[in-house]
């Protein structure tokens, strides 16, 4: 990796990264894929997030669904761990709580394949600095 040498460099890099993200989020990228984020802070891992993440990695591959699965930090819903966020191309992200392997299977079959929501969705209950 070449070092970032100036603020201008950094801003350029940000623009490039951002536009990649935007394309992905808007689903305009021809290669747009399902994105899954698994909350993997200590609390999530303790309630089984790692198993869930491995399950998604394995099963989505087996069921030939093209998806990006990443880990992220604590989403704040400790009462509903493990929690994940699923984003279908061109749609608002959805956070789902109490995800175990069985729920993960339901999410793949119902939501990811057919866009049907499943029980256990956690509504976004906070404001972000982006819309301030």
């Amino acid at each position: 990796m070449a070092k970032v040498k100036s603020l201008a460099d950094l801003k350029k890099m940000k623009e490039q990264l951002q536009s990649k993200v935007d394309l992905r989020e808007k689903g305009e990228d021809p290669e747009s894929r399902v994105q899954i984020k698994v909350a993997m802070a200590t609390c999530g891992i303790a309630s089984g997030a790692k198993t869930v993440m491995d399950y998604f990695l394995e099963e989505l591959d087996k069921r030939s669904i093209d998806a990006v699965i990443t880990q992220t930090g604590c989403m704040g819903y400790c009462y509903a761990e493990p929690t994940i966020e699923v984003k279908l191309p061109g749609q608002e992200p959805v956070v789902i709580g109490y995800v175990d392997v069985k729920k993960a299977d339901e999410i793949i079959e119902k939501y990811i394949k057919n866009g049907e929501l499943v029980d256990g969705i956690i509504p976004m209950n906070y404001n972000t600095i982006d819309n301030q």
Binding site: C74, G76, Y126, T128, Q132
Partner: peptide, 15 residues
């Protein structure tokens, strides 16, 4: 929405 995430802005959002 009673919450506003400043310190937690990236928690649960980025890898």
């Amino acid at each position: 929405k009673k919450q506003l995430r400043i310190a937690l802005r990236n928690c649960g959002v980025i890898n």
